[in-house]
């Protein structure tokens, strides 16, 4: 379980919430705190107060994969193959093991044809796919996909959902504005103005309310 207690981070305030293993959809309007929640669960952001534990460990003691909502900001290296190799190299795996991880992640995600490309020349969607591949190459316990689907066409997304599902990541946190992704998740939480406003099935009816409210 991911257990969050008495959390304060940026505008986010979470007295207590427990996220089960599986795919959790994180839903909310722009500025609600979705990215902040994902960041504290991955250890990218330390809370101002409170605790986050992933199976009893601090997020920074847990392997995490991160796909940013700004697809160009997920990438650190100038060549796609180096980007995918980065987690293995930082973990000081032997070169052959790094190569195996890179090829495996690239094939899974359909990024094999991009390995020799410069990350600068990728389209926004391709950058997101490469970020997913790089995240999966590190075999993370927590995989955070921050509005990952927003950069992808329908067909590419449909191909990648099973990849995410079968990735072996024990926890997938996926923030999204797509009702279909939320409906397909194991669990959903709704953030409103930095607080958890709803959990579970109640989350999905929100999309209809938002569409109706805007129209």
């Amino acid at each position: 379980m991911i257990e969050i207690r008495d959390l304060a981070a940026r505008n986010l305030r979470v007295p207590s919430i427990t996220l089960p293993p599986g795919l959790t959809a994180v839903i909310g309007l722009n500025g609600a705190g979705k990215t902040t929640l994902l960041e504290v669960c991955c250890g990218l952001l330390l809370p101002d107060a409170g605790t986050v534990l992933v199976d009893g460990l601090a997020p920074r003691e847990t392997d995490a994969g991160w796909v940013s909502a700004s697809s160009d900001r997920s990438l650190l290296f100038s060549r796609v193959a180096d980007e995918l190799a980065s987690s293995g190299r930082f973990a000081r795996l032997p070169p052959q093991a790094v190569d195996r991880c890179v090829l495996h992640a690239a094939r899974l995600t359909g990024a094999a044809g991009l390995l020799d490309r410069s990350t600068r020349t990728l389209s926004g969607g391709e950058q997101s796919v490469v970020a997913l591949a790089a995240g999966l190459a590190g075999a993370p316990t927590v995989l955070a996909l921050d509005e990952f689907d927003g950069h992808l066409d329908r067909e590419t997304l449909a191909g990648l959902i099973p990849v995410v599902r079968n990735s072996g990541a024990r926890y997938v946190l996926w923030s999204t504005h797509d009702p279909a992704i939320a409906a397909g998740a194991d669990h959903a939480i709704v953030l409103e103005g930095g607080v958890v406003a709803a959990e579970g099935g109640a989350a999905l009816s929100l999309f209809d309310a938002w569409e109706g409210g805007a129209a």
């Binding site: 909310g28 309007l29 722009n30 909502a69 926004g124 927003g150 950069h151 938002w210 409210g213 805007a214």
Partner: peptide, 13 residues
């Protein structure tokens, strides 16, 4: 890609 990252009410708007 203007719709990416916008929430549902913002997309409709």
């Amino acid at each position: 890609e203007p719709f990416a990252s916008l929430d549902v009410p913002a997309r409709v708007g």
